[in-house]
Design a protein around this nucleic acid. Sequence first.
DNA 1: TTGACAAACAAACGTTTGTTTGAGTACGAT
DNA 2: ATCGTACTCAAACAAACGTTTGTTTGTCAA
Lengths: 230, 230
Amino acid sequence: MSAVAAPLPQTPVSMRDAILDAAEARFAGAGFDGVSVREIAADAGLKNQASLYHHFPGGKQAIYAAVLARGIDAITELVAASERAGSLRGDPAAASPYLDGVFDVLIARPHLARLMHRAALDDSPYARDAMPRMLQPLYALGVRILQDAGGPWQPSELPHLAAALYHLIFGYFADASLLQALLPEDPRSAPAVARQRLFIRKAVALLIGAAAPVAAPGTMLGAGKESHRA
Amino acid sequence: MSAVAAPLPQTPVSMRDAILDAAEARFAGAGFDGVSVREIAADAGLKNQASLYHHFPGGKQAIYAAVLARGIDAITELVAASERAGSLRGDPAAASPYLDGVFDVLIARPHLARLMHRAALDDSPYARDAMPRMLQPLYALGVRILQDAGGPWQPSELPHLAAALYHLIFGYFADASLLQALLPEDPRSAPAVARQRLFIRKAVALLIGAAAPVAAPGTMLGAGKESHRA
DNA sequence: TTGACAAACAAACGTTTGTTTGAGTACGAT
DNA sequence: ATCGTACTCAAACAAACGTTTGTTTGTCAA
């Protein structure tokens, strides 16, 4: 689909990437304090944790910072690319490029949503000042896009709307392993993800004020997999 | 407002409650692995961490379990009380009692949202099987309420809607300390909370189909329930 | 006073943590 | 061959971790 959302290479090209991949999975699953550098080293294929300090002299915190920056940049550049393509310019019904792009990247990199959700909850001295700095461009971008969309919201409500959309889209993937135990179906399975994609489209259309999404012929809402009948 | 949402007593009546209060604040702020039993003991007024094991022989994990159960039960009983009062019975526009009740309890206990958000992300062997067990009643309750409300959603979409509403309502308070650095205003201040309360009311009204403020009269989305395949 | 019990204390347990040191290996350039 | 660089490794470090042990204090009943 979208060539922008490039998944991680199955085989990391460098040891630095292998370390970042291993750290991303571990940090997303257990958080900064729940991961030991020995685990990261072992997952990356190193037999000794001391080798990590050659690639990241800053130690564990530097690895964490690099993982976070890489993940947030991926999302930010994706949204920025959709905006440069001219999506959602005064037309609230055309939010699909943004949603599909984010969806694709969250599916391709299954640890990203949980990693960012965790980092948002963190209040360590480092995350407290690094997270806002890394998220500022993405946040400003989102508010500007919602501003141009022209929904039924006042300017003072746009920050609330931006935060709500973030929680709406990322929350499903971040809490997938918990939802798996609550729902009758694995939320990461193909049909569940497809259903969530349609759900988000409808929910976002309702929220940002797409007056009649199904009125326009060929739009995404009416023609889903739900029309499948035996 | 709602007398149901009773805040924690300012002065804990027992040492056990003092430990739980201290642990709730610490666990919400730094997570299970980011908190030491020495910190909890000190915050609870104990000069020695060994005293914790007298009140909680199960150690750190038992304290964590008790904190989680207390928090989840508070939310569950609140929603159950609203349901017994007969709110939202076939009338999607009457969701305010639920929203205001949850809002009041999340304001009165500022660590609850972050604590639950963190626990949802956890995948330790304990949380992996305890969280679903503790959340099952609340989840079933939420889905049943949404079912009775009769919104524009199909039954297969109700789990997605329930999860979305949870993320929508709890996410704002859970990420408050991050939003504080991104927004021009403290999200926990009185005007910001009031604005968020109105925002959530409007958003929920849009999502569960309360009179469809901008939608054309004809139930564009809700038409596809049974009569769709006529 | 005596016995009993809950509660808080000090000290130490063994383990794991992040990090550092120094020696060793592979390899292209000189 | 020899140097220099990039990289990995084993071993060890101090600090912090959760937990246990043994003792002391306070309190109520007999």
